[in-house]
Amino acid sequence: MSDAVLTITELNKSFGGLQVIDDVSFDVARGSRTALIGPNGAGKTTVFNLLTGVYPIDDGRTVLDGVDVTNIPAKDRVIAGMSRSFQNIRLMPHLSTVENVMLGQHARARGLAQQLFPLGLLRRNRWAEEARAALEQAGLDTYPGQVVADLPYGIQKRIEVVRAMVANPKILLLDEPAAGLNSEETEELQLLLRQINDRGTTLLVVEHDMHFVRTLCQQVVVLNFGKKIFEGTPDEVHRDPAVKQAYLGTDSTAPEEAGNAA
């Protein structure tokens, strides 16, 4: 694990005296597809929020590709190479599909000239073309001009992934990308994520669907009550007694069962 794109060291966070993240450390290997799993309330989304700077970190360090990003402002983290999708869809409801994707490019469009470039007036500019190409690759090219609020859930979910992807991050943080998708949509999503990964983007995925995790990810980190209780391959994870205990103790869907059921 010498070549880590993201190193998290002794991360701590408490809300009003409640320790929600407790000394969590792990590495995400460059080019890997890593999953972050755990029962409800284990702190997975909180880890994402701490990484992307939604909340300040109480204690600990995050290093992204050799750069300490622990205390840089949230808006600069995407520039440093980290972008994400959200558990609950958070697309801009009044923007079109293409415009939402172009927001994902924002971090790459530096400087005043780029800010004042008329994206919407010139139909064939490189940003719009790129956004449309990214949508096409994700099989979403049929809705370029449509306002996203009117689109079905599954489509919106995938637009979120595309939006995060076009930021060209070093690491892509995906918060339950498959939640609420049907099996066909999940399949397409897997394909898309593999393509993204093949081009060198590291994936860190929070997911409940263990089948999805097992087929996609090579490495799994398990959190429970804000603590890391396991780190290893997906095959090892459901043999681990601590993980079993965590899932059976709090939630009826053990990763094993969930995996078999799917």
Binding site: P93, H94, L95, E99, A107, Q115, P118, L119
Partner: peptide, 28 residues
Amino acid sequence: YLMSTRFGLAMRSVHDDESVATLFGVNV
């Protein structure tokens, strides 16, 4: 013209969801 630029896009994003706009690098 201004609304069609990337700055316009940033403005509309800030209108819709400030914190997500921030996470995509918009200086809100």
